[in-house]
Design a protein around this nucleic acid. Structure first.
Lengths: 371, 371
DNA sequence: CAGCCCGCTCGAATCGATTCGGCCTAGAAT
DNA sequence: ATTCTAGGCCGAATCGATTCGAGCGGGCTG
């Protein structure tokens, strides 16, 4: 009565530590000690246990039992606001992820990819129920609050990258507003007065389209809002368009819309990401608008953009360092130390996509403020 | 008004299902049923349990206990042969990862990133001890055999992408040899006879340098070997250099070495990845060698390479489909169905980096085999 | 020679949830 | 009215490993 080929020693089930102990002639507790090495066990005994284990083909303690008892799973979750595909298309995310792995290296923990897209169905392993010791929330997800609440109830410590949770969750962020302001000031000093914006999405719906007061007010995305404020600090009346995601395609679309009418064409565009900036440049090329002669474009991130011919003027943020800081914060949290927020600063990299505005304003009796 | 209510019932420890059951006035088993919904429980009771849970701030069954009992953790491991940073720099890997998430979607499982770089120290969660239900081995890791053995002992089903394990592990692969042969034939038909190779690493040490019989014989990397064979099918005596990793930098270095001596310059280079090909092209530009006029370059993968000006002639492989197939194989395996290997085919994309060889061979009385 | 200390093992409890068989009760059928 | 049926609920065992305190024998010291 055996469905499987029943070898002499192997029952249907995999050997457990108890089996090993029995074969070695010791108690389960001793066998456990022999493995974890955290107790006084004679070398002879330990060897006997190991021998028994190898005879049984025992591959070491089952992580499930272990994590139940220990209360730790050795896994750190990374919560992405988008599906994995989208996140990995964003070079900034990848760099942060890499930084995170560096940061949590001392833990020797694994990285579990999670998304907080809505409810998890059935047996799904979501943020609500994943065997993680801590999580890193990546990106300013609109539904971040929901996730944080779930984690709090589960008693799982969290660190947020670029997402104000307003709680006891440590934040890893950058000077979004100040950085953008510096970039805007640079454009202003070049002589630009007619500046358009291309922003990251503001809300969970990822509404694409013209910037409206309603949209801005309803923002649940801090990064977009902060960068918007930084731009407005210098160009109070600047307006533009919101993209649905940070991608070249979205930037292209926004760029087409902004540059469509030659009569009302900005002399500069402040894009909230390098990918969006690249898209705007692509749109400019399509429409025969020269960059930077007729249009200056400013990006944000400091990544190398695939296929972009220009050396983009952009605000370079330390993505890897951000990730690493988040990882280190997780380590601290798990060690019981108090959470510590960090704010990095970005630097303006001047490339070849920005320059003085063209001599004659694109028509339209705009403020000729320069004598 | 108490954010952290220290209610009469809440001790230092988090509530368990038993606590909830007690408060609801039912047994733990009933409470469990109320949550899993897999048994007959009256609506009234269920509601009472849920109410008790919310009163206690119970966030649902602990995944540790659940997975111990159920024997499933709801996590699928992805074993990368390199550190995460390196893997995510490779667009092919990212695409495969994305495909995997698609493939395992019906499982609702999380993805745990693992690397099989050597032994795991201390409490590290490695391939030896990770709470995974199955794993996908990505890439032809030299130490793959070791990983497979560990998994077999633990009884964890695995699927390998591009790595011959020679066992009962289902393989997801592509026609590396045939595809490369087709590419080589294309070059031959253009008139090339003097072709150099730039290969992926052959061994665990990632030895960089000239191809030698020793190196080729000692190969533990099937992808590199297969593609090499495909090239040799057409150019039996072709030689070249092995790169340490698939990257533009490595390709650049190999390209410099291959093109250094104007007297012994190949008219075409077969690179085993697009990144390597891009590096070779970069080297050619450095040295003033025109592509494709003086040098044809063939890549492999079909990705868009960052910053590359050309439309690379390459063998396009279905990376996402490979990942998806692997994910689907995992689902099958977990469902108890027999493993199923898949082999995809690549297609030759002719871009602008290949053309006929220059009129006068690069000097050196090389085999003027064409009359 | 007796007593004490120390190092090694063992038992038993615990972590938190799930599952299976059995019991109980209310309503229905005869 | 009695028996049958079935839906609901409970008890207890189980998953696999870890941990803490107790026991026990041998070596060292006074």
């Amino acid at each position: 009565m055996q469905t499987d080929p029943a070898p002499r020693t192997a029952p249907i089930t995999r050997p457990t530590l108890a089996d090993v102990a029995a074969l070695a002639g010791v108690s389960a507790s001793t066998a456990s000690l022999a493995y974890s090495g955290s107790g006084p066990v004679s070398d002879a005994t330990k060897e006997r246990v190991l021998a028994a284990a190898s005879e049984l083909g025992y591959a070491g303690p089952d992580p499930r039992g272990r994590s139940l008892r220990r209360g730790r799973s050795g896994i750190v979750g990374v919560v992405l606001e988008e599906r994995v595909r989208a996140a990995f298309l964003d070079p900034v995310k990848i760099q942060m992820l890499d930084g995170i792995t560096e940061g949590i290296a001392p833990l020797g923990a694994g990285l579990l990819l999670l998304t907080d897209t809505g409810e998890e169905g059935g047996n799904a392993v979501g943020i609500e129920s994943a065997p993680v010791d801590a999580v890193v929330l990546v990106g300013c997800s609109p539904r971040l609050g929901h996730s944080v609440e779930a984690l709090r109830r589960r008693g799982i410590p969290a660190v947020a990258i670029e997402g104000a949770t307003g709680d006891d969750v440590p934040q890893i962020s950058i000077d979004n507003r100040e950085a953008t302001r510096r970039g805007a000031e640079y454009l202003r000093d070049l002589g630009h007065t007619d500046v358009a914006l291309v922003t990251l999405p503001f809300d969970a719906a990822r509404t694409r389209g013209p910037l409206t007061p309603d949209l801005e007010r309803g923002s649940t995305a801090d990064t977009a809002s902060e960068r918007l404020l930084g731009a407005r600090d210098v160009f109070p009346h600047a307006t533009g368009r919101a993209a649905a995601v940070s991608s070249i395609e979205e930037g292209l679309e926004a760029g087409r819309a902004l540059l469509a009418d030659p009569a009302h064409r900005p002399t500069a565009v402040i894009a909230q990401s390098d990918l969006l900036a690249a898209g705007v440049i692509q749109a400019a090329e399509e429409l025969g608008v020269a960059v930077p002669a007729e249009l200056s474009v400013l990006g944000f991130d400091g990544i190398r953009v695939d296929g972009l011919q220009h050396d983009l003027t952009t605000l370079v943020q330390p993505s890897v360092a951000k990730g690493r800081a988040a990882g280190e914060a997780v380590v601290q949290l798990l060690a019981g130390e108090p959470p510590e927020s960090v704010c990095f600063t970005s630097t303006l990299h001047v490339g070849d996509t920005t320059g003085p505005p063209p001599r004659s304003p694109s028509a339209a009796g705009a403020t000729p403020s320069r004598p």
